[in-house]
Design a protein around this nucleic acid. Structure first.
Lengths: 350, 350
DNA sequence: ATTAGCACTCTATCCCTATGAGTGCCAACA
DNA sequence: TGTTGGCACTCATAGGGATAGAGTGCTAAT
């Protein structure tokens, strides 16, 4: 996109003004608010050009201009500058995140909640992707005949467990032996390298009758696989209703309807994570604007996520879904700061 | 409330019509829809009387009548008849509840989700009140130096755990001894009879140095107490946006804002549970209508809950938050049926 | 390349009116 | 005493101009 410098300024100003006022911005008000040393007629020419390029558009013939998705994209990619949060803003966030919790999950939920409060938008986080973490401990506890609890401690400091069914006539002793064998064989193995075959191999010499063994192994395997399932945490959905951008009930309904299917949102975040659309090397966040988002009802939204690290290889995402018409640089700083805090606090768990 | 039988019919008809059409109902349309063998003028007299009693009201001078909170209350208490769901409706619900899950929590979430889908309103459930359940097993597993996992199996078939901090230099052996002592002493005790004192007594003879012991005991106690904390599951909040009753964005915002504070809603349900307002002996559900609900923003809602049983003494609530203008008898049957299914399925876990 | 000027477009707002559903009340009736 | 027909009155809602205002595109001059 080659734009001469004034046109860049004009686009920048239009985005800024529209974000601020939520009203289509015209050539005259642009002159009033900003120090362009040219006349409104000149800006009108520039604006016609920007519209021709698809960066801005008119709601109707005689209205001012609003940024198009492409315009926001240009703004985000090349025009805006991201500033650090002020010490005061940083403090506000630090005060809000409750870091006194004992579990990673709670910490993530807290951070997500804080992010929603801070931005005023919907926030979301994905649980850490545990496929790269490895098994540190695995114990199977008998609960009662036919029922056992598989407890796993993963390298990232995460504890997972699952109630499983086992054959009724297996006794403590046998379970203990199976459990020990699995643990011995699988400790240190990344979750994504654990297959049903490796689990079965683990228990070769347990001296437990084969038909009994099979079911336990399968259940243990299922428990392990469940441990690396992704969870998503959404927060602050109701805040969207306070935004003028969603004052039409229809839009609000579609949006919240889509967000209520958290599995679908999680799938989308995952897809984003694996996409090559973003210049990840440059920045540590991903942005999707308006129609770029393939979820229904999010056409008027932007979706920004950053990646947090529980360990080097165990990561998750945290971010925001807000209106396209948002203060991108501010929101990005806020996400970034929350992410940093989250990373710091997570060191406690690993 | 002494009403002659025609006035009862009139109130009944007004509620029915208003629920159906969402429009104030006038004397004339009442005649048209129902077989009152009197003239509209007579109904006008009756309606004036009902209004005088505070059972119905006018949005403005020359409009029809709508039921007041008191009118709905009368309807619910004395006028409506509750019918069983049709076999088809029952089947629809049975199809929807996924009962193949391994944990009570998942089952409850599924039932809640189904209830929201079925009614089209917000549904909610409280986790079982575990204070009356007793400890069946308690194990403390070392995770790493300074960190352990307390695993509890409760009589209601529920498994709870919590990561706790312990002194760094406690070894496996010592933890095993403490764990065994606590378990031996507390097994069979209802959770609400377990105090810090009883936990401390449990571990008198463990031969673990006292200062180390203290911290573990405190953490174990905290874990036990956390096990009986109440969780709430809300589902289908977005459905409220599809209801004409909440077509005003302001109302919808207030409502969803309040619901987003799930802790507050949980507190309210608990309060309801302990209230004596309801004739619990007669029916197995509780209803709060409009202003009877002390939560902000729920003035236009009704709140109906029923009690499910995990065991005889371990219960929770499941119910619906919908608009006042709802088909009470239908919704009550739906809740009741879901509750029954839930009770049946829960037998598997105990 | 920039600017002033101008005709044109379209929305938003206000006011006015007509419509119609509904009410309360009164007098008459069974 | 309860019921009814009749009637004047009320008020929300919808529709139809008329107007103001902000903004645009285009042209001709600088």
């Amino acid at each position: 996109m080659q734009l001469d410098s004034r046109k860049k300024e004009v686009l920048h100003a239009i985005v800024d003004d529209f974000v601020l006022t939520n009203e289509p911005v015209g050539s005259k008000s642009l002159i009033e608010r900003h120090n362009f040393n040219v006349s409104s007629a000149t800006l009108r020419n520039d604006m016609a050009e920007l519209e021709h390029l698809g960066l801005i558009e008119k709601p109707h013939t005689s209205a001012g201009r609003i940024p198009s998705d492409k315009g926001y994209r240009e703004y985000v990619n090349s025009l805006m500058t991201i500033e650090e949060l002020s010490p005061y803003e940083q403090l506000e966030i630090e005060k809000r995140i409750d870091t006194s919790v004992d579990e990673v999950t709670e910490l993530i939920k807290n951070a997500t909640h804080t992010l929603s409060e801070t931005t005023g938008f919907v926030s979301l986080a994905m649980s850490p992707r545990l496929t790269k973490s490895f098994l540190k401990q695995l114990k199977i506890l008998m609960i009662e005949p036919g029922k056992a609890l598989v407890v796993m401690v993963l390298s990232a400091g995460v504890v997972k467990d699952k109630v499983v069914r086992i054959p009724n006539f297996l006794n403590d002793e046998q379970i203990f032996r199976i459990s020990g064998a699995i643990e011995k064989y699988l400790t240190g193995k990344p979750l994504d390298e654990i297959t049903l075959v490796t689990v079965e191999q683990a228990a070769k010499d347990t001296e437990v009758p084969d038909p009994l063994l099979k079911q336990v192994l399968y259940e243990a395997y299922a428990a392990i696989k469940q441990a690396d399932e992704l969870n998503i945490y959404l927060d602050g959905e109701h805040r969207m209703l306070s935004l003028p951008d969603f004052s039409s009930l229809g839009r609000a309904r579609d949006l919240l309807g889509t967000l209520s299917d958290s599995g679908m949102v999680a799938g989308y975040v995952n897809e984003m994570e694996n996409s090559t659309l973003d210049s990840r090397s440059r920045d540590s966040y991903m942005i999707r604007i308006g129609q770029e988002i393939t979820l229904e009802g999010l056409d008027d939204c932007s979706f920004i996520t950053a990646t947090y690290n529980l360990t080097d290889s165990v990561t998750g995402n945290i971010g925001v879904i807000g209106p396209k018409r948002m203060l991108y640089s501010k929101v990005i700083s806020q996400i970034d700061f929350v992410k940093k805090k989250l990373n710091e606090e997570m060191k406690r768990f690993t």
